[in-house]
């Protein structure tokens, strides 16, 4: 990551807050999230259920119902501010400049319309072309995402497609308007590994061709290692670690990231006992005081003066390591990782 990231960032999220008032109280789903993604790069957002990874990404496309969600902070896409945009402006923005791929292609494609109709509708909403030209475009897109026999397939219904093909069709629909920003929310989680490998290759190829900025939401660190340039680890609505993938997965500095690595069984070597993070993620209605991770953190006693339980740590840059930040009170996380965590990784 270079120093001028901020100037050429295509997506720039600053101090994003997303809250949902409910009968039980205020759900703080995202609190003070900031990140940026330049064109041609992929940012992976990882975290467990309820960490805010999907909620924050839906906010980027203005997908939250404003009657239900309170959103503050700033989200700039290609210089345009999304927070506070009218529904009409958002409609023009979505599908055109930015698009989203979802986890479940089954529920994201309409069962009553042919796959071709749905791709054409998305295309014609943003480009004034004839039906015939739109159909040509749909066939071309199906071909590009690797669907065999696209001329025949374009007139078929979603139920006639297999799971992997439906995911490809959804990607074709998302990319039909050459979006500069693509948000992929667990796009391969519902797929089998061999199909997942095909879809990951496809997203990487398409990104190379279109040069778009990609936000890839996943919980699979193996997928992150293969596809992303940067990684943002989220916990309880905030970023706890952020930076280049190669550095963070090789030498993470936050105890939560350590716990994730220790929970994944290895594919080689003698199986070692796993060392999972104890407990469960906190409720977003009543976040713990201090560091939100402290109730599950085995290193909190290393920090003097009970800082972990009383003081919320800031996301601070790591000295001498450009573009890398972590939210933890530990003084020497690199040494703790090296000496204590690394030896027990699976």
């Amino acid at each position: 990551m270079s120093e001028n990231t901020h100037e050429d960032a295509y997506l720039e999220v600053t101090d994003l807050q997303v809250q949902f008032p409910t009968a039980d109280g205020l759900v703080r789903a995202v609190q003070g999230l900031s990140y940026s993604v330049p064109l041609g790069r992929t940012l992976a957002i990882v975290g467990e259920s309820g960490s805010g990874k999907s909620v924050s990404s839906m906010a980027v496309l203005g997908l939250h119902d404003r009657k239900v969600a309170r959103i503050s902070g700033s989200i700039k896409v290609g210089g345009r501010e999304i927070v506070g945009m009218s529904e009409k402006e958002l409609e023009g923005f979505r599908g055109g400049g930015a698009a989203m791929i979802f986890q479940d292609p089954q529920s994201s494609l309409h069962p009553y319309f042919t796959v071709g109709d749905q791709i054409m509708e998305s295309y014609r909403a943003h480009t004034k072309v004839s039906k015939r030209a739109a159909k040509e475009r749909a066939i071309d897109m199906l071909n590009r995402v690797g669907i065999p026999n696209p001329k025949r397939r374009v007139d078929q219904y979603p139920h006639e497609f297999s799971g992997g093909m439906r995911q490809r069709a959804m990607i074709a629909m998302a990319l039909v308007n050459d979006p500069k920003l693509l948000i992929a929310d667990e796009p391969t989680t519902a797929l089998d590994v061999t199909v997942q490998a095909q879809i990951l290759d496809l997203i990487a190829d398409l990104q190379r061709d279109f040069g778009s900025a990609v936000v890839f939401i996943t919980h699979d660190l193996g997928v992150v290692a293969e596809i992303a340039d940067d990684i943002l680890v989220m916990y309880a609505g905030t970023a706890v670690e952020h930076g280049p993938v190669k550095k963070i997965l090789a030498e993470p500095l936050h105890p939560y990231a350590w716990g994730l690595l220790e929970s994944i069984p290895a594919l080689t070597g003698d199986p070692q006992p796993l060392h999972p993070i104890p407990g469960t993620p906190p409720s977003l209605l009543a976040l713990p005081s201090g560091c939100p991770f402290h109730p599950r953190c085995e290193f909190k006693d290393r920090v003097p003066n009970n800082h972990c339980t009383t003081l919320r740590p800031d996301l601070i840059p790591r000295t001498g390591d450009l573009g890398r930040t972590s939210r933890c009170h530990l003084k020497d996380p690199d040494q703790v990782f090296e000496l204590e965590v690394l030896p027990r990784l699976p």
Binding site: A197, A225, E226, T268
Partner: peptide
């Protein structure tokens, strides 16, 4: 086909 974290 299994993505492997070892690459990093």
């Amino acid at each position: 086909a299994v993505p492997d974290i070892g690459v990093v």
